[in-house]
């Protein structure tokens, strides 16, 4: 249900761009106005969401510890998974953000015959997730060649690495294949693993289809329905220099506008959605905190005094019984 709905939504978006450009000749709207608007929504929305998180304090030191704490000097501490220093946290977070450390731990729990639980390797989700995110990043970086006049060496190097197999012309990018495969896997597991299907919302399928649409149109544009790339860069340069030239928009194929519109949708949708995990992963208190709560007092900004049952009240309740039992009391 959610999958079909999302697929229809993405198809509708593509159709809007197609009709808008091919029939409505709204190149300026789709090529300039919507991209500016989408970027604005993305940046302000993203910041708003992060600031909103930031407006709630982290009252307690609640890291999830995965390994030995700092203890007696002769007991080996796991300085990364149970960090007692900021350095440890930085390494832990880096592993988390760059290599998906926690997901790497993933296991598959199964009930085998005789009601025996077995725990198996389950690295596919980790692998697909990592492949997807990294190829997405590489593709983003590659696209910088459309936005920078003198394309800097690192960007050219990444581009060179991505195409180093030198298959076909234009050169085939590995990241294109990887992202399509990875996203397809992420979609299929949502459909075929019953539990994952059960928890999946339209909001889970929608971004997958959107990204599939973006990558798909990108690939088509590069290898099949070629567009005037030089023209695309001219448009892009006009956009980033805040001086877009409407004349340049005419000569570019409609597939470019579909590609661009889907990207704009992704950017605008981003701050409204679970995609905010990109910013959220940095703020997760179970991962980004030092496990030093017995060494260094954490202050809760909203800590307030509470009623307690004082010793005095307690002794008043039990003085006679305490005396009989030989327990010292404050007041005879």
């Amino acid at each position: 249900m959610g999958a079909i709905l999302s697929l229809c939504a993405v198809a509708a978006l593509a159709l809007i761009a197609f009709i808008g450009v091919s029939a409505g000749h709204l190149q300026y709207l789709f090529g300039v106005i919507i991209p500016y608007a989408a970027l604005l929504i993305f940046i302000t929305g993203f910041m708003y969401r992060v600031l909103k998180w930031g407006s709630s304090p982290v009252p307690f030191c609640i890291p999830t510890t995965c390994g030995q704490e700092k203890s007696l000097p002769w007991i080996k501490q796991n300085k990364i998974d149970n960090p007692s220093t900021t350095f440890g946290v930085v390494v832990r977070m880096a592993l988390e953000v760059l290599l998906f450390r926690s997901l790497f731990r993933n296991l598959k729990t199964q009930m085998s015959e005789g009601a025996k639980l077995v725990y198996g390797e389950a690295k596919w989700l980790w692998l697909a997730g990592l492949a997807f995110h990294w190829s997405f990043l590489i593709i983003l970086v590659r696209h910088l060649r459309f936005f920078i006049q003198q394309v800097p060496l690192p960007v050219r190097m990444i581009e060179g690495l991505d195409s180093f197999m030198q298959i076909g012309a234009p050169l085939f990018y590995m990241s294109d294949a990887v992202i399509l495969l990875a996203v397809t896997y992420l979609f299929l597991r949502r459909v075929f693993i019953p539990q994952v299907r059960y928890i999946s919302l339209p909001a889970d399928y929608f971004p997958l289809f959107l990204i599939l649409g973006i990558a798909g149109t990108g690939v088509l544009m590069r290898y099949v329905f070629k567009v005037n790339v030089v023209g695309v860069k001219e448009v892009a340069m006009g956009v980033v220099s805040l001086n877009p030239d409407p004349k340049l928009l005419e000569g570019i194929g409609v597939i470019f506008y579909i590609h661009l519109f889907l990207i704009c949708c992704l950017f605008a949708y981003f701050p409204l959605s679970k995609l905010m995990h990109m910013g959220g992963v940095f703020l997760s208190p179970t991962r980004n905190m030092v496990n030093n709560s017995r060494m260094k007092r954490r202050v809760n900004p909203w800590n307030y005094p509470v009623h307690i049952h004082t010793y005095e009240e307690y002794e008043n309740d039990f003085r006679e019984k305490m005396k009989t039992a030989g327990i010292p009391v404050e007041k005879e």
Partner: peptide, 16 residues
């Protein structure tokens, strides 16, 4: 009061 709560309400991707 709790960043954890707000954050955990927002960022789950339901990977399972």
């Amino acid at each position: 009061k709790y960043r954890s709560f707000r954050l955990f309400m927002d960022i789950c991707v339901r990977c399972g």
